[in-house]
Design a protein around this nucleic acid. Structure first.
Lengths: 197, 197
DNA sequence: GTCTAATGTAGACACTGTCAACAACGTCGA
DNA sequence: TCGACGTTGTTGACAGTGTCTACATTAGAC
């Protein structure tokens, strides 16, 4: 028990904020609610985060970190093409298991990002996971073309996740069997599109 | 000049709300701001919309209506496959020209949708545009399979739009030439995937 | 010990959504 | 004509929020 670490308030705030978002939605996130949850005065969090947006940025940065770690912990494979498929599956699974976090990262207006380098950095790190796989898969390919393929693949997978985690989907009267299906279909099509190098 | 229509406040509110969102973002949308913009008391909008969420739902419903009209005004084509391509182009163009509206429709938490049938109805109408094209393209195909294909196509196109209109994109240090490219690529791949009926 | 910086507290302000009471207004039946 | 009535808009109030300022506490360095 290191005496020096009673979980600093700065970290507790991020955790509490995630709970508030999970329980009552992003709209209901307020510094005062976080303070109440932690049993401190309404100004205590303000000492560590200059504004609500800074706390939100910290939460989002944490999400990107978790997301990257989840992607990197996918089943390993030496075959680059197969590895790309595993990456896609890991991506789909994360969005399915953590819809709130997914929405936060990709469907929420970023809070004045120039002031939050951590957020930007962690987001780039997550995207780099895909870049690295493609670099192995494509061998000697100009970086620009790698990014182009990455963007294409990301688009296809993100589209499905964005629709699934969004609100529109719930009200289109589409059968659940239909909803669940296209995951593997999208992945198969991506690997098809990557073939003719 | 019909004496009876000095633009009812109810409609003006939606228009003013769209302006506020365009100028200051969704977060800054408030009934009071709308009232100020229209030069009425802070409670006047409240007479027409029981809550801020109801006004927001009206704005979103209007967006879906505009979106559907834009899709339906695409260049006509008798060839169903070519028509699907035109639909995709129209979709991409709308998201490109109206990123705020696109975000509002597909990346914003819906305000208690059960209470806003207009919103749901207009969203379904927009999705029906795609359904109808596929119905023509696919001939006699069970509705479930049509929805499955619609979801697949929508995923691919929406993914690109969602990424383009999102905030993540702006900070990944990707060359603009790369960003602009995959539009036609995605469409080509969709038509490829639709081929082997 | 004392000085200092970090950390947390208390109070105030403007802003917001929302509720309740009230005023202006046209409409319609007597 | 007139008065009851529903519609629309106004005014005032309340709690909740972000944020500013001033103050208290506390731990560590000298």
């Amino acid at each position: 028990m290191s005496k020096k670490a009673p979980i600093p308030l700065k970290d507790s705030c991020v955790e509490a904020a995630r709970e508030v978002i999970a329980e009552k939605g992003l709209e209901a996130l307020s510094l005062r609610e976080v303070a109440r949850k932690l049993g401190v005065s309404h100004q205590a969090p303000y000492r560590h985060y200059p504004s609500r947006d800074h706390l939100l940025a910290a939460v989002m940065a944490r999400c990107f970190e978790d997301f990257r770690m989840h992607l990197e912990s996918r089943p390993t494979s030496v075959d680059a093409e197969h590895d790309l498929g595993e990456l896609g599956r890991a991506y789909l699974q994360y969005a399915n298991d953590h819809p709130l976090e997914y929405r936060l990262m990709f469907s929420t207006p970023w809070p004045a990002p120039a002031e939050h380098p951590d957020l930007v950095r962690n987001a780039v790190f997550a995207f780099d996971v895909l870049r690295n796989v493609l670099r192995l898969l494509a061998g000697t390919m100009p970086p620009e073309e790698i990014d182009q393929r990455a963007l294409f693949i990301w688009s296809c997978v993100h589209g499905l996740c964005g629709i699934r985690t969004g609100d529109v989907m719930q009200h289109l009267a589409i059968a659940p069997s239909v909803t669940d299906l296209p995951g593997e279909q999208v992945l198969a099509m991506i690997s098809l599109a990557m073939r003719p190098v």
